[in-house]
Write a protein that binds this DNA or RNA. Structure first.
Length: 648
RNA sequence: GCCGAAGUAGCUCAGCUGGUAGAGCAGCUGAUUUGUAAUCAGCUGGUCGGGGGUUCGAGUCCCUUCUUCGGCUCCA
């Protein structure tokens, strides 16, 4: 007998070789019907795999992330089975579960596979699923594994097997499909009741662009048709929050082929929003001791040779601008730091001056690959809320922690709760990609890890994600469709001060090298606003929104009064517009409601006579009549309260 | 840059197997002077992304190019 410890701490005894599924059955039939896999001693196993030792057991269902993951992994196999049946000769690479569903990378040979083809694959998958085929696990020797896939003619699987150790290779078979796989899988295909193949894309084999491009088919499955429908509705909702769509609808920004791809044009309302964010940041930075500086949009080639950017990105950036007479070369600035280094150098510095914090909303230009451009999140010209802190080595940690505070202040103010703090370190396998000494990298990485720990941030570590001159602490946020974007970033840099020969005179009257911290809480205004739009679905916080109120006269007779109302509100720093179109009030309400303007003030005969406004709140409707001043106070109170709540 | 898809009026979209463009909204003009999510009528507006080709004839078929979308690679 073996002892099985369940999550509630209870211990049950079963014969050796009992499966998780049988244990589930011994608890309840209903539970057994829903078990997808099980966590045995912390490892996710097939529910049908015999347990031979004492173990802790957690049964996994659709309600567990790992249960879903098992289901989706099995779904990838099912899709492969369907594809193999429909496209004989297709070769399979890898097919893992992902956050929302699964994919399989497939080599279709000469055939092209597009989204038009997915319907019949979905149908085939459902047909195969109804067979309730069991997923059967089998240990295979390396030689047998190689033999199987050699006969099948699948070079990708053979390459994968090469990297595996004999004795650790397993196959899974369901129906007519056998795959190299370590599992685990759901008991049988019958759990898969609803299938949707979402998109088809290219993906390089093993993620290397030198390799062949395979066809990646993304899909998702559900145990109930209803859940699929709900998911599709959710996707539709997310698409409505897409910043590219809302940016157009709310007249925030646009692009023009003539100006150039990836170069956003800010419309008045978008520019107003941007300006508010800039003001907010300027205020916060002034309080934190930053000094504003301004630098030009181009810089001499020598500047970037010194900084190392030329060597690293020279060929892959916008090509130089040549002067007509002197033959000098200038680059569009890809970063502000070299310019700021030169500002630091403009005057001798004493240890008493440090830290010096130079801040600039600096617009930079980077040549991004054509296929990578994406709305406002990936552009070729953007403005960073950049700053560079020059400090003594003993000040690094304190300054870094203060910057973390600032980033969190900004995120809180804008209700960005769902972020990941990512410590981006260099790839230890590929140090040639980076500049600077091991010693300096060590110091910088240590400073980041310690500061993040000191601030109690929950962090994930990503190797190979560092900047070429130093490690980073990045704040990652997801967009409406779940794509991750880097917003805020803080970087410790020992290298640029060396390259630029930055110095300060210490209390010992000797020259010392300062340490630089690069930081941008928003990251880029463009990307930040993109994510902000998607987070609030275009319903911006009252303090930020381009138009806070729309004054709607009942008829043209009250246009003058409406103007007067707006002027009075303007005095209290409330911004908005008068909708004096010759339309009925219902139409005006509808239109302004769709423009997501937070407050509508309806004014007619009664209001004019009493000097009041009838207030209608976006999404809520009529909230009553107020005096103009009362309404102004109401708005101010909301804004103040909002900040108080979020920033304590 | 790579794989796949798409590009028709300012916006959202229709246009079957090739027969010389259509709707709603927006805009303009007029009527109406309106009380909480679309007042009515009329009008304007498109070298169907650009270029080339096949054809008597191309929005529709072919080639090429640009841009956009979904991914991959990259991302200071």
């Amino acid at each position: 007998m073996i002892n099985i410890t369940l999550p509630d701490g209870s211990v049950r005894q079963y014969p050796k070789g009992t499966t998780s599924l049988q244990i589930a059955q011994s608890i309840s039939e209903g539970l057994a019907r829903n078990v997808l896999s099980a966590k045995v001693n912390g490892e996710v196993w097939d529910a049908t795999r015999p347990i031979n030792t004492d173990a802790t057991l957690q049964l996994l269902t659709w309600n567990d992330a790992e249960g879903k993951s098992t289901m989706w992994h099995s779904s990838a196999h099912l899709m492969a089975e369907a594809l193999e049946a429909l496209y004989p000769g297709a070769k399979f690479a890898i097919g893992p579960p992902v956050e929302n569903g699964f994919y399989y990378d497939i080599d279709f040979g000469d055939k092209t596979f597009s989204l038009d083809d997915v319907e019949k694959v979905e149908a085939k998958m459902l047909e195969l699923a109804r067979n309730n085929s069991e997923y059967i696990r089998k240990d295979v020797s390396k030689a047998d594994a190689v033999k199987y896939f050699t006969e099948k003619g699948d070079p990708y699987k053979l390459e994968l097997i090469e990297g595996l150790q004999d004795g650790q290779i397993t196959f899974y078979t369901q129906g007519n499909f056998t795959d190299l796989c370590k599992g685990p899988h759901i008991p049988n295909t019958g759990f898969i009741k609803a299938v949707k193949l979402l998109n088809v894309a290219g993906a390089y084999w093993r993620g290397d662009e030198k390799n062949k491009m395979l066809t990646r088919v993304y899909g998702i499955t559900f145990p109930k048709d209803k859940e699929l429908k709900e998911y599709l509705v959710l996707l539709e909702e997310a698409k409505k929050r897409d910043h590219r769509k809302l940016g157009k609808e709310l007249e925030l920004f646009t692009f023009s082929e003539k100006v150039g791809m990836g170069l956003p044009l800010w419309l008045p309302k978008g520019a107003a929003l941007r300006e508010k964010l800039e003001q907010f940041m300027r205020k916060a930075q002034t309080k934190a001791g930053y000094l504003p500086v301004v630098t030009p949009h181009i810089g001499n080639k020598e500047l970037y040779v010194t900084s190392g950017h030329y060597e690293k990105y020279g060929k892959d950036s916008f090509q130089p601008i040549n002067t007509p007479a002197e033959g000098e070369q200038f680059f569009l600035k890809p970063m502000n730091c070299p310019h700021h280094c030169e500002i630091y150098k403009s005057s001798p510095r004493s240890y008493k001056d440090l830290p010096i914090r130079y801040a600039e909303f600096g617009t930079v230009y980077r040549y991004e690959q054509h296929g990578e451009l994406h709305g406002l999140t990936r552009v070729r010209g953007f403005t960073q809320d950049d700053a560079h802190l020059f400090c003594r080595p003993d000040q690094v940690k304190e300054e870094f922690c203060k910057v973390i505070d600032l980033v969190l202040y900004v995120f809180n103010a804008l209700d960005f709760k769902d972020y990941t703090a990512q410590i981006s370190l260099r790839d230890p396998e590929n140090k040639a990609k980076y500049i600077g000494s091991d010693e300096n990298w060590g110091l910088a990485e240590k400073a980041i890890i310690e500061s993040a720990a000191e601030k109690g941030l929950k962090t994930v570590v990503e190797l190979g994600e560092a900047a070429f001159y130093g490690p980073k602490l990045d704040f990652m946020v997801k967009d409406a469709l779940g794509r991750k974007w880097q917003l805020g970033t803080i970087q410790v840099d020992y290298n640029l001060p060396e390259r630029f020969q930055l110095e300060y005179t210490g209390s010992d009257n000797q020259k010392h090298r300062p340490v630089m911290i690069h930081r941008a809480p928003f990251g880029s205004l463009e990307r930040f606003i993109a994510v902000l739009i998607e987070h609030c679905g275009g319903n911006f916080p009252l303090w930020l929104t381009p138009d806070q109120v729309a004054v709607l006269p009942i008829s043209e007779k009250y246009n003058d009064y409406a103007q007067k109302v707006l002027s009075l509100l303007n005095i209290s720093d409330i911004r908005g517009l008068v909708d004096d179109r010759n339309e009925k009030i219902g139409k005006k309400i509808r239109d302004n409601e769709m423009k997501k303007i937070p407050f509508m003030l309806i004014v007619g005969e009664k209001e004019e006579a009493e000097g009041k406004v009838a207030v209608r709140q976006h999404g809520k409707g009529d909230i009553g009549v107020m005096a103009i001043e009362e309404f102004a106070k109401h708005i101010e109170a909301i804004i103040e309260n909002d900040f108080k709540q979020k920033l304590n």
